[in-house]
Design a protein around this nucleic acid. Structure first.
Lengths: 220, 220
DNA sequence: CGGCCTTTTGAGTGTGTTCAAATAGGGTGG
DNA sequence: CCACCCTATTTGAACACACTCAAAAGGCCG
């Protein structure tokens, strides 16, 4: 993990260089330092003190919880532009790890709160997590494997900027643990979506959503 | 739905009459009117304007979302003492309905916010929903039917005051739609838990948790 | 080119589902 | 208070989707 000596100031205002974080249309500002995390490196762990908040500059992050016997559930993925790590209890409820080589802006929560009164901007980011968790509950409770994959891919492309061709930042195992499936089921379902012409895979990470509307129909 | 003419003031302070809401150990106060809802009556609906917040006095409430083809997912149950309906978007993301005959205190969100500055007390209640959604994700993604039922029953008894014998306020179908199972699986699993001596059922609503520690072990 | 890890594919199994029917329970009216 | 009805719940049997275990194929990096 490398730390840049200069403080980075991150505002919702002016556009920044191209392949980095796309602007989030909110007024959240984060004053902190940029840090680099290697693939699979832990950012914070369940039980840690939760005094820092993060914003993804590039790369991707998974947030997950593990049951006693090792079963892992990925709660969410964080992509460039996303803020994460805003908690309201003193300790972390999940572990965060870099999916790939990742650059984050890290700030003390207290500093952000001071700068913005009641920290309402932060609450709003936690809210986003809430809404996504609620959507996730619908997916996990009621959808078939095909529906899960289809809505996952559509969600991903939107959050990555909307291009119908992109690289998956996560492994099949990560997708499985996010969608509540096994790695084999994820693989088989993707193959099946490809055979049916909904998607095209080039290598296992690069994907093209060939028929997005049809894919959306699959989600119910 | 009957409306009491007198405004009810609801504080975390002095204890109230016995079989009604147990105190929540927070400083949230809700100034509003009490309303009565019949079994299965809608309290608010997905898409409605979200300008009211609620506190359960007696009875119970389910919050749910429905997929296009009718599959229903119950997001959460609200029990006496619980505050619900705090949203951060202008419209409701879920539908709320009374599980049984239910008394609620209803307040304008704006009034509550005015009274408490940034409405931080309200944020805290939304936070509770977030944490419960996240826990629910773990359950739905990674747990077996038996584990789901066991943790559901333990959660319920805690929230109802801790007694090991109590009445389920919801139907088997509600439980199924909450846990992401079918009604048949819920029924079979409860029967199995009874045969194994973990619980005792007297009528389908009254339940006794015979061996709570053992039940907790089932949850992983 | 070789080794290692990830992904894909195959075959068989199992948990939970589906469809169907029986039973129990609760409410109502006689 | 009892009989009846209606709905909710339980039980049964067969099925299906996703899982498990196993092996082959593909990628990536040295």
């Amino acid at each position: 993990m490398q730390m840049q000596p200069i403080a980075a100031r991150f505002a919702g205002g002016p556009a920044r260089s191209a392949d980095v974080a796309q602007p989030n249309r909110d007024d959240f500002r984060l004053i902190g330092v940029t840090k680099h995390f290697d693939r699979d490196q832990e950012i914070f762990s369940e039980g840690d003190r939760a005094d820092l908040v993060y914003k993804v500059v590039s790369g991707a992050v998974r947030s997950c919880r593990v049951l006693a016997d090792g079963r892992r559930q990925i709660c969410d993925f964080y992509l460039p532009g996303d803020v994460f790590g805003v908690e309201f209890e003193p300790t972390r409820r999940a572990t965060a790890e870099a999916l790939v080589d990742t650059v984050l802006i890290v700030a003390r929560r207290s500093v952000v709160v001071e700068e913005f009164g009641q920290g309402e901007a932060l609450w709003r980011h936690a809210l986003r997590d809430l809404q996504r968790s609620q959507d996730h509950v619908l997916t996990l409770g009621r959808r078939s494997a095909t529906e899960r994959l289809a809505s996952f891919l559509l969600d991903l492309t939107e959050r990555l900027g909307g291009a119908s061709e992109f690289d998956l930042p996560m492994s099949r195992q990560d997708i499985a643990d996010y969608l509540g499936l096994t790695i084999e089921t994820v693989s088989r379902t993707l193959t099946q979506l490809q055979v049916q012409g909904f998607i095209q895979l080039h290598g296992c990470r690069h994907i093209r959503l060939a028929r997005r509307a049809a894919l959306a129909d699959l989600c119910e």
